[in-house]
Design a binder for these strands. Structure first.
Lengths: 200, 200
DNA sequence: GGGAGAATAGTACGATCGTTCGTTTTGGCA
DNA sequence: TGCCAAAACGAACGATCGTACTATTCTCCC
């Protein structure tokens, strides 16, 4: 609860920023140590292995994601308002202002989607949680009467995921300035379709 | 045109497979050399630097993408048939059967979206080409009367990109067996919306 | 304020990284 | 067949990787 946990948190904060830019594999103990102003062994002593460090970084990312996206979303009213809040927070989450390298989960997904191990397991667990929350939020919207009754929440969640992934791709890699506007267009199309109102 | 170019092609083939699994940064000269049954220096002699190797790998991937996705698409009739052909080939392109690690461009995108240099420049150029082709294909479909006249091809391209990216994410990382069916559902929704027919 | 235990520093290990260099093998042409 | 350039090898470079180990410094409680 004291010094140790404190510097461990500091280390993980820097590690999260570094890994968002260079990936969980590109995150190295040496550069991490010099980043926080410690020696390699000083940093390493807080973790059992690099793999454990990577898992801890993912958990830290999850905590921050919950704080910045999930919690504000849950404070919004159930149904459509909550869906909109989650979407906007999720989009903002990928901005370089919150983490210099964008969404760390997307980066980790490409790195570990075919490398078995505890890092991948952790990542998959977090992503499944998030997809599950998106789906249950959609189900809530159905229950509230905001979404049509025959909507499949999990299909809807995958579609929303695509809107955000494409936004990250177009905005960060391709540097397209209107990627955000186009993502919101796609989101609105998703909403009107889910609401069951006939398109004009 | 002889031995040198030949082994260079062999090297790049193995390098492409390796980089699809471990990323362009995780691709290492040593493992690449042992993979093709040569020494490090023997492999290295074919490239000026690792960065040049990474660029060459991306170019190789682009060549194969053109062969497996773009060319078959162009052989299909303009308009909606071509759109469908490109989509199906694009989905198949991400399968582990063609490259063991899935789409190398998606992997490279996460690795290099915030690391300036020739690798990123090459990747961005290829992705811009592909987005441009998708958009012009949509514009063709408008001209053919298959898509409605007020469709914005670039917005449509970004949406389609999202469908495929989400499919890769759900199928490869989350191992969801119905990700393909859901992606095709999303694609059909995209098609009916683009065709201008009112949703049922 | 001194002593116990946590926290960090320091050093070193074997391995591998990208890269360079000189040597040897190979292939194609006279 | 002999030669020359191309191609691959083999060894080594300095640097850094993750990981151990011991030693030193700090923190907190009695």
């Amino acid at each position: 609860m004291t010094k140790g946990q404190d510097t461990r948190a500091t280390i993980l904060e820097h590690a999260l920023a570094l890994s968002s830019r260079f990936g969980l594999e590109g995150l190295t103990i040496g550069t991490l140590a010099s980043e926080v102003g410690m020696t390699k062994s000083g940093v390493y002593a807080h973790f059992d292995s690099k793999e454990a460090l990577q898992v801890a970084v993912l958990d830290t990312a999850r905590d921050r994601f919950v704080e910045l996206v999930v919690a504000p979303g849950l404070r919004a009213p159930r149904g459509e308002p909550r869906v909109r809040e989650l979407f906007e927070r999720w989009v903002a989450w990928g901005e370089r202002t919150v983490l210099p390298g964008g969404c760390p989960f997307v980066a980790a997904a490409s790195e570990f989607d075919d490398r078995p191990g505890s890092v991948r397991d952790t990542l998959v667990a977090h992503q499944r949680d998030w997809v599950g929350m998106l789906a249950s939020t959609a189900a809530d919207a159905v229950a509230e009467g905001h979404f049509r009754a025959d909507l499949d929440p999990r299909t809807w969640a995958q579609e929303l995921f695509g809107v955000v992934l494409a936004y990250y791709h177009f905005a960060h890699l391709l540097c397209m300035p209107d990627a955000g506007a186009r993502a919101r267009q796609a989101f609105e199309r998703l909403m009107t379709d889910a609401s069951g109102v006939l398109a004009t």
